[in-house]
């Protein structure tokens, strides 16, 4: 029982990174109506760039800055060169384009970084602490703290800035938002860059725990997607709750059963939620047309 609590703590910490990844997916979906399947590859790109830069001797802060810049640039490029030119294609085709972008980013990462895993040290050195009878790396605390800070920053942006209000307005009523003089494309670009930054943050804090390689993106993206869908895709808070749930389920299954079942259980959860409560996706689709 005590161990279970330990797994929950680990799960909440990992889950907080899935939460920010999922928050990015929900944000882009709300603003542009697109599910960005390249989000996981942004996570990979951020984590891998960070690990490679750290391995080659860069200060962790500098390595993080490089990783954030590269990933944000990649997010901007996805919007400017892929999604914007194809904006009249309809949301389903744009979603397919993000899958294409995902494959492309993965291929480019293979070319640039090779197929090997890369290792980054824990923030502030290796520390372990004992809680509920298991030993937990201090990096998990970093995960939770950084993710909480990132989520708070997004919340402040959405509620306190005109750009954030514009995003919420687009989510609520696209045509009327345009009437206010809000440019959907420009705001969509901002949302995608924020999503890419959130993904990179997730990738960076996860890098010391799960050493990234070029193929690490897809499973992480699917976890973020699961998080966003569990939350109904329409609410940032829902995505955060969904991410924490995915993390806890994953950690408890790994701890009590086997890590082999981990992904199966997480995606089983996704399928179960879609079957039992398809409300998430469907409600959003209807709302959007109003």
């Amino acid at each position: 029982m005590e161990q279970l609590l330990g797994y929950v703590v680990v799960g909440l910490a990992t889950g907080s990174t899935y939460a920010v990844i999922g928050l990015g997916i929900a944000l882009v979906y709300q603003v542009s109506g697109i599910i960005n399947f390249a989000q996981g590859d942004f996570v990979m790109l951020g984590g891998l760039t960070y690990a490679v830069a750290a391995e080659s001797g860069a200060h962790p802060v500098a390595a993080a800055a490089i990783a954030l810049t590269v990933t944000a640039g990649c997010g901007a490029a996805l919007h400017l060169f892929v999604l914007s030119p194809a904006r009249d294609a309809g949301h389903d085709r744009l979603i397919v384009l993000t899958i294409g972008a995902s494959i492309l980013i993965q291929g480019l990462a293979l070319l640039v970084f090779g197929a090997d895993q890369h290792f980054a040290g824990s923030f502030g050195g290796e520390h372990q602490f004992q809680a509920f009878g298991i030993s937990i790396s201090a990096q998990y605390l970093w995960c939770a703290a950084v993710a909480a800070a990132a989520a708070t920053a997004v919340w402040a942006l959405l509620t306190r800035s005109q750009s954030g209000r514009a995003m919420r307005a687009l989510a609520a009523d696209r045509e009327t938002a345009r009437l206010m003089g809000i440019a959907p494309l420009r705001t969509g670009l901002i949302a995608l860059v924020i999503a890419a930054v959130l993904a990179a943050i997730g990738g960076i804090v996860l890098a010391p725990i799960q050493p990234p390689d070029a193929t690490a993106g897809v499973p992480l993206g699917l976890k973020g997607f699961t998080a966003a869908v569990l939350g109904g895709l329409t609410s940032p808070l829902g995505a955060i709750a969904g991410g924490l749930l995915v993390g806890v389920v994953e950690a408890v299954v790994t701890g009590l059963v086997s890590s082999g079942y981990r992904d199966a259980v997480v995606y089983g959860l996704l399928v179960a939620v879609l079957l039992v409560r398809p409300g998430g996706l469907l409600v959003a689709a209807v709302r959007e047309r109003v």
Binding site: A172, A177, G181
Partner: peptide, 26 residues
């Protein structure tokens, strides 16, 4: 040029204050 659309189309989930701030967007 400012249009008050049919059916009012206020941003329902946003506060009155935020709705007004959006009116001054830009």
């Amino acid at each position: 040029v400012s249009l008050v659309p049919e059916g009012r189309r206020v941003f329902a989930p946003l506060s009155v204050h935020d709705n007004l701030l959006l009116g001054g967007y830009g």
